[in-house]
Design a protein around this nucleic acid. Sequence first.
DNA 1: TGAAATTAGGTTGTGCACAATTTAATTTTT
DNA 2: AAAAATTAAATTGTGCACAACCTAATTTCA
Lengths: 149, 149
Amino acid sequence: MPNNDNLKLENQLCFRLYSLTKLMNRHYSPVLKQLGLTYSQYLVMLVLWEHNNTRSVVSVKHLGDKLDLDSGTLSPLLKRLEKQDLLSRVRNSNDERSVEIKLTQAGCQLKAQAINIPAQMFSVTGMSIDDLQGLTTQLDTLLTTMKTR
Amino acid sequence: MPNNDNLKLENQLCFRLYSLTKLMNRHYSPVLKQLGLTYSQYLVMLVLWEHNNTRSVVSVKHLGDKLDLDSGTLSPLLKRLEKQDLLSRVRNSNDERSVEIKLTQAGCQLKAQAINIPAQMFSVTGMSIDDLQGLTTQLDTLLTTMKTR
DNA sequence: TGAAATTAGGTTGTGCACAATTTAATTTTT
DNA sequence: AAAAATTAAATTGTGCACAACCTAATTTCA
């Protein structure tokens, strides 16, 4: 039988995730503002920084796969980062459909300024390493399940 | 000492929350589309439905407090719902600064169509009631901590 | 009481997120 | 090889989310 209480805001997992994501963003924003980045731009930079140098190249497609974002989101975002001279966008000569993203010197160097952000944000959670690990595992399970339904 | 791995996407709690929230939204969207609602509009309707009748009244302020949204988000959102004839916006005659939101008949009746959504979404998570309860508790703790820092 | 501070809501501008569509390049199939 | 299908990006349009700012109403208090 349908239960009326199910529709209460307090009983919704999704509302907690929604609220937490907004709250997380509010903690990141002032910190990232010092680097001139938004949270989404920071995520893109994280992927690029994993390749760690100005020679490596990552396609827009790869970024979209990693971050689960489509070109409608990434195209304008990458143009903004290009305008800030953090990266360049060059069409792949082997496959003209693909656009390759490469960090500039400035984009590469920005990593040094971001190095302490994860620890700083972790401290905001007030969690222990073990609790964090536990929560991470649960969220990964949930992500996997929800991706396949 | 700063650890390079901290900047890896896979090690970030925030990225999991961010991804889960988007994924959650993608599961809600097609279901809510049948009611003509977005997820944010659904949240507003949840609050209004808790008051459960066309006589009760909820201020924009109260909605903002409940959902942690400011007038820059709520004002246009409420206008869209008003245009759909789900609610009305009337300035409070006792305090002209305040705007009171009241469900219309249609807005009230829409609740019946939403009654099964929570159970439907719960099934998408693939979780047990106990796991859900456990996760909910952890997220509430995290929300409380992060709100006070 | 009258000035100052606070409060509620609205407006404007920026940046996602994503659906839907378009274009061009590449791959597959016949 | 030509037609059909697929793929990668870009573009357009809608709807948040929020900062910054504005207006008007109310409250506080000197």
